[in-house]
């Protein structure tokens, strides 16, 4: 049995403790916005926040989430349904093509801005290099991050946006 907070709600799951969080979130908790891309932490499609930090859910044993605060793409919006500033920037810059990697891209970008509200290009490179986009929308992702950088501050721990 593992108990953790998922997008603000306390959830308890009963499964093999080594099961990656990705499959628990998708199959048992029915949140399918977090994607399976490689299962080896090489592509970033499955990125979630664990206690505010970006983590690859495909290699995160569910048992390690005991007591943690977990946020998935579904929890990136504000409690009132307002889009996170990055989600709006993703729309403004028309970032997604197939869209499959974008949950992970957004979660990595949100964690970056939470820690570093005005990242340099090389900060963006370092935070985002673990996220593959086979449609190749890196230029637009960078533009969208910069659109939000400096303009606001996102508190990944709280899952909401300040100032």
């Amino acid at each position: 049995m593992t108990t953790f907070t998922l997008n603000g709600e306390v959830r308890t799951v009963n499964t093999d403790p080594e099961t990656p969080a990705l499959w628990v979130i998708r199959e048992q908790l029915d949140l399918t916005g977090t994607k399976f891309g490689c299962g080896m932490a090489q592509c970033g499609a499955c990125t979630i926040h664990v206690n505010g930090r970006a983590q690859r859910s495909c290699i995160t044993p569910v048992s390690s989430l005991e007591g943690a605060s977990v946020t998935t793409i579904e929890g990136l919006k504000g409690a009132d349904g307002t889009l996170h500033a990055l989600q709006q920037a993703w729309i403004d810059q028309q970032v997604p093509q197939c869209g499959y990697c974008q949950s992970g891209q957004l979660m990595s970008a949100a964690a970056l801005l939470a820690e570093n509200p005005s990242p340099s290009d090389s900060d963006i490179d370092n935070a985002m290099r673990g996220n593959v986009c086979r449609c190749g929308m890196y230029g637009r992702i960078r533009s969208a991050i910069k659109q939000v950088a400096d303009a606001s501050f996102y508190d990944a721990m709280e899952g909401n946006q300040n100032g």
């Binding site: 949140l31 793409i73 729309i91």
Partner: peptide, 26 residues
Amino acid sequence: PRHDIPSKVDGTAMFAMDVKRPGMVY
């Protein structure tokens, strides 16, 4: 603006792997 993009920034876009049928196994 592309009509499909809003659903691709909040996790609601449906890909085949997101389908769940009653009694489904893997």
